[in-house]
Nucleic acid binder design. Structure first.
Lengths: 96, 96
DNA sequence: GTAATATATGAACACTTGCTCAGATATTCA
DNA sequence: TGAATATCTGAGCAAGTGTTCATATATTAC
């Protein structure tokens, strides 16, 4: 079936959201449940600012969802599509 | 489960290969069967050089496979993982 | 109110990416 | 052989990306 230019761009944008090792590692951590920005930053050994910047991109692409609790913001995967995409990619990498 | 830094990079590289509208459109065309570089270039309204550059990246990521026939080179999707990734991405974009 | 904590944001800069252009390589045909 | 065709490749450059740093916002505790 034919792919419109708009859909092609949207698809590319979606995959772009997963096209960076930092973001992939964020997704990987969130597979185990929600996490705050600071905890993510510590696990990833990145500054909170860098993590926050990346989370923004993931949020805009609807890959993660934020929940505010006091002054903390907990992030989790938006839906199961994300996990499926991640796992399928991993299969390909691990040579499926 | 824990994701090594190497795997994170490999995953990011895989998704990077799909993170451009031109490449997504190439994949989309190849869903219907193999195609030569010239035919792809015409359908995509891109120069053959630009298409060839992109195919190189897709080849290196093992998303497409080349078959040489005379002076033509026919490309096709490497395996069904590629189509699955594409379709899953499309589902997400079309709001699944 | 002020101070401390958690996150978000904008600017700046090094690095990467995708294109064009020119030219190289490979194959077919006369 | 030489010309034509199909694809590939390297250099160059404009545009995009991910980080750091400084600062802003929001919430809690005092």
């Amino acid at each position: 079936m034919k792919l419109t230019e708009l859909k092609a761009i949207q698809l590319a944008e979606l995959f772009s959201a997963l096209s960076d090792a930092s973001r992939v590692r964020i997704i990987s951590l969130l597979l185990d449940g929600e996490m705050g920005v600071g905890a993510l930053a510590e696990k990833l050994d990145m500054t909170e600012s860098a993590v926050s910047h990346q989370l923004r991109g993931l949020r805009q692409m609807r890959l993660v969802r934020a929940r505010k609790a006091g002054r903390q913001v907990f992030y989790r995967l938006d839906d199961d599509h994300v996990e499926k995409l991640y796992r399928m990619g991993l299969e390909h990498v691990e040579h499926g």
